[in-house]
Design a binder for these strands. Structure first.
Lengths: 234, 234
DNA sequence: CGCATCTTTGACCCCTGTCAAGCAATGTGG
DNA sequence: CCACATTGCTTGACAGGGGTCAAAGATGCG
């Protein structure tokens, strides 16, 4: 799991200071000497697609920054149903709840090969005590998560299936106009519909030429068309 | 709007220190001398049912603690549809987003006659700078809100209408086994269904004897029955 | 009392869930 | 290399939930 540069973590968070995406992450605002407060190793871990990063209910002794890839946060209902409540892209923070002493509230599973930094809870607690610069970022992260949760509800849980799918796709398109889709089961769990209906809805968008299949689960998409469908204007 | 004790706010947050529900609120952990850092008035305001506490998009220069009553947080969709994303009861905090410099992200509307404390953003910022005791509570509040948002999605946006309504009712029952319901339009916006269907679903629960009408919009409810419906076991 | 608003109800049809079967892709073992 | 099991995706048929539109009660307020 551990990458080659892992040992340098011991040297006062050196690898964090030189992080390639530092301006995106929790430690964005830390200054030179703040890093010396990091007294526990911050590991860089790789998760293969389908594997969990952590599981709901477990005692959390670390939070995570997603460096690359994609993580889904899944919540299980009493009746065994499951629902995906959020997706985390690079720069996002997973497991914030451990900073308030809670066990993990979701199961975090990689949808793509993903790399993340594992930040021990004690590191955040110490930084939080000693430097005010982390506070702002922590609040910022909570805010991000909450905002995303609210959006998820209004955009991906409201309207008919084709609208929801179109909105999800709009969130997922890369700059080159393509998307990598997930299994139909995952799509269903995100949009609050059945696997079968997810399949049908994807087929419908293909038929409407809003989606064009490139390879297995890679699609080129017509964003104007998608936006039109998302708004139910057509 | 202002209550009689409002003037005492100037005296270093006296009325906050003596707050009747202080153990529930944002300032729960503050100590004796922290209150002297409150240099701006914290007003106690009353909102009548149906009136807004604040509106989405507005520059936020204060956040709020709900003292009594009930607030809905509403989000508007591009197409004019609206969706209620959360309910705030006594002790809850509204408008946390202003602490990270954002405008209000929802429109907050009273569902019942509500009283709240208006806490200027600057007060929170100063306390946040000077005393660490507020941090924990702020994080706690973010966490509460996020947790509620996730639950809202899985419980009130998943399954059939009767299940969702049953789950909502379970959240709303008072200790005496009664509920005060909202307009059918509000119910619809919370459960993600139409006004008409909300009406039908309430009628269905009455027919099933899970709900018994006491007065206009007050009901006695059979919790066992509701839990059974929520789980779709019957 | 009369107008406005909210709730309820009915009729009708579309959307989505359900159950089942067919297909494709992949992998396993003989 | 091929039969065969496995897994995930797709399709069809059908039923039921929920949306839509319209009209008829309630309820409340001026």
């Amino acid at each position: 799991m551990k990458k080659g540069r892992i040992d340098s973590a011991w040297g006062g968070g050196t690898q964090c200071r030189d992080c390639g995406i530092r301006d995106l992450v929790l430690f964005a605002d830390l200054q030179q000497n703040d890093f010396s407060l990091i007294h526990l190793p911050i590991e860089e871990i790789d998760i293969e697609a389908g594997k969990p990063l952590y599981s709901a209910g477990n005692e959390g002794d670390a939070l995570f920054t997603v460096r690359a890839g994609l993580i889904k946060l899944v919540q299980y209902l009493p009746d065994g149903m499951q629902r995906t409540v959020r997706l985390l892209k690079h720069g996002a923070t997973a497991g914030l709840e451990v900073t308030v002493g809670q066990p993990y509230e979701h199961t975090a599973i990689a949808l793509q090969p993903t790399s993340a930094c594992r930040i021990p809870r004690l590191v955040v607690e110490r930084l939080s005590r000693e430097t005010p610069r982390l506070h702002r970022q922590l609040m910022e992260r909570w805010h991000q998560a909450l905002h995303q949760a609210d959006d998820w509800l209004t955009e991906l849980s409201t309207g008919k299936a084709s609208q929801r799918l179109a909105r999800l796709l709009i969130h997922l398109v890369e700059t080159d106009g393509t998307v990598t889709l997930f299994s139909r089961e995952d799509l269903g769990a995100m949009l609050g519909i059945t696997t079968e209906h997810a399949s049908r809805t994807v087929a419908e968008l293909k038929r409407r030429d809003a989606l064009f299949e490139l390879a297995g689960n890679r699609y080129r998409c017509d964003i104007d068309q998608l936006e039109c469908i998302a708004a139910a204007d057509c």
